[in-house]
C-alpha cells in the first residue's frame, strides 16, 4: 500500500459487453493501428547513429604526448582498478634512443583490453596517473569472433597528429579534481 498503486482484485462476473469480447478486440485493434503511424523507436543503425552525450564512455584510447610518445608507463593501476578485469599488460624497459617513442622509462610492450569484458565504467581513466588512457565517444564495433574483441595496442594507441579529442571528458571539474591529486606529476607538461 506504500505506493497507493495496488489494485484490489475482484472476481466479479464479466458483464455481457465484456463477454462478447468484440469491443475489447476493436479497442485492441485501434491501439495497435496507432502504433503503425508512430515514430519508430529503432533506427537503421550503421547508416544512422543515435545521438550520444558528449562525454560518452565508448572505445578506449591510449594517448600520446605532444611529441608522439606513448604516455602509458605500465604502472598497472588501470588494470587494478578495473572491476571487470578487462585489462592486461606486459611492461618493458625503455632502451636508449627510444625517448621519442615512449615518454617514461618503463612502457607497456603489450596492452590489451578485452572489450567483451569491459563494462565501460571509466574507472581505468580515473585511475591512470599519466593521463594515458581515456574513453571516447566511439562505439566498439561488433565482431563475430571473440579474439577480435581483444584490442591490443595497434587498435588502442592513437596516431600522432591525428589525435582523438578527449577534451569533452576533461571538463574543468575533472581538471580541478586532478589538480588536487596528491601527485602533481600527472599534469600535461613539456617533455624533456
Amino acid at each position: 500500500m506504500l505506493t497507493n498503486r495496488s489494485k484490489v482484485v475482484v472476481n466479479k462476473q464479466m458483464s455481457f459487453m465484456e463477454r462478447i469480447y468484440l469491443p475489447a478486440v476493436v479497442g485492441g485493434l485501434m491501439t495497435t493501428i496507432k502504433h503503425l503511424f508512430r515514430k519508430k523507436t529503432t533506427i537503421d543503425y550503421p547508416k544512422e547513429k543515435r545521438e550520444i552525450s558528449e562525454n560518452y564512455r565508448g572505445q578506449h584510447i591510449l594517448k600520446v604526448d605532444e611529441n608522439g610518445a606513448e604516455r602509458c608507463t605500465a604502472c598497472g593501476l588501470c588494470a587494478v582498478s578495473c572491476p571487470a578485469e578487462a585489462i592486461s599488460m606486459t611492461a618493458a624497459e625503455r632502451k636508449k634512443g627510444e625517448e621519442l617513442k615512449y615518454r617514461e622509462e618503463k612502457y607497456a610492450a603489450v596492452y590489451e583490453i578485452n572489450m567483451l569484458r569491459c563494462i565501460f565504467c571509466g574507472l581505468c581513466e580515473e585511475a591512470c596517473p599519466k593521463e594515458a588512457i581515456f574513453l571516447t565517444d566511439r562505439l566498439v564495433p561488433v565482431s563475430g569472433e571473440r579474439d577480435a574483441m581483444i584490442y591490443g595496442k595497434d587498435k588502442l594507441t592513437e596516431k600522432h597528429y591525428n589525435e582523438v579529442d578527449i577534451s569533452k571528458r576533461q571538463t574543468p571539474a575533472v581538471l580541478a579534481f586532478k589538480q588536487n591529486k596528491q601527485y602533481q606529476h600527472n599534469q600535461l607538461k613539456q617533455t624533456r
Binding site: H35, L36, K39, K40, I43
Partner: peptide, 13 residues
C-alpha cells in the same frame, strides 16, 4: 514489416 511497424520497429530493410 507489419509486425515491425505495429511494434514501433523498422523491420527487414
Amino acid at each position: 514489416k507489419v509486425a515491425a511497424f505495429l511494434q514501433d520497429r523498422l523491420g527487414p530493410n
